[in-house]
């Protein structure tokens, strides 16, 4: 069923962030949305889970239009979606294990032992086994991020949204997280949207690319297509050459 974003508009006061953005993440694929800081990538992602309501346009997830759902239906939908936050957004007041268990307690009908087992499994998956009793403040940035992923995947969601999963991490951790994203998609058939401006990571995980520029979709295509793309804005972004982009705007 996938995630379809159609003609999404969103402004915050006078500031137009999304100005008719459309893109589609097909079932089972990993879509990487590229774009500079403040280009509205996170805003797009928040529309997918209904954290923000669009000014116009719509987001379709799993065949349902997010903005038209009643609150209960929205919670139902969210049970199928995992969200990895940029700064992990772990609950400070809880241990790591409790953080990971949060979604399970709410989204599944597992009993206490099954939850504990699943938490252990998820922590092992992100290489944090044995850290379950620590609190977020006792973790490093990379560990927190991995914990955030563990929390998002714990409920075995069909859709996973990654908000800059690798930003600010060391290369080894980055590679590890990329592998994790790939595994989720390959082994579990998860449909993913990854927001990033880390090009190495992007090329490792992407089935397809989209580029968000000035609130619209500037490019949509496969990794090969983006490599061959002549658009100066796209080129400038992936090659890290601002002069190309400036010419355009």
């Amino acid at each position: 069923m996938g995630i379809v974003i159609r003609d999404l508009h969103k402004s915050f006061g006078p500031k137009v962030v999304l100005d008719g953005f459309s893109v589609e993440a097909r079932d089972g694929e990993t879509l990487v949305i590229l774009g500079g800081s403040g280009s509205g990538k996170s805003v797009t992602l928040k529309h997918v889970v209904g954290l923000l309501t669009p000014d116009s346009g719509e987001v379709e997830v799993d065949g349902q239009i997010v903005s038209t759902l009643a609150r209960e239906e929205l919670f139902e939908l969210r049970r199928k979606v995992g969200y990895v936050f940029q700064f992990a957004a772990l609950f400070d007041s809880m241990t790591l294990a409790e953080n990971v268990a949060m979604g399970l307690r709410r989204k599944s009908d597992m009993d206490r032992e099954a939850i504990a087992e699943r938490v252990e499994e998820c922590l092992r998956l992100v290489d944090l086994d044995g850290y379950g009793e620590r609190t977020p403040s006792e973790l490093s940035g990379g560990q927190r991020k991995r914990a955030g992923i563990a929390r998002a995947i714990a409920t075995k969601p069909q859709y996973l949204l990654y908000d800059e999963p690798t930003t600010g991490l060391d290369p080894v951790t980055r590679a590890m997280i990329d592998q994790l994203i790939l595994r989720m998609s390959d082994e579990l058939g998860v449909t993913g949207i990854v927001i990033t401006h880390d090009m190495d990571s992007a090329f490792r995980v992407a089935d397809r690319f989209a580029m968000l520029h000035n609130g619209r979709c500037r490019f949509e295509g496969t990794p090969d297509e983006i490599r061959a793309c002549e658009d100066p804005v796209v080129r400038g972004f992936i090659e890290g050459r601002p002069e190309l982009m400036e010419k355009e705007s």
Binding site: V49, L51, R79, G82, Q86, G103, R106
Partner: peptide, 21 residues
Amino acid sequence: AEIGTMRVTEQIDALETLAYP
């Protein structure tokens, strides 16, 4: 302070995505 911190560190959004009102 606690809820404000949760707000600015997206913990409230995280709650929503974990289907907690």
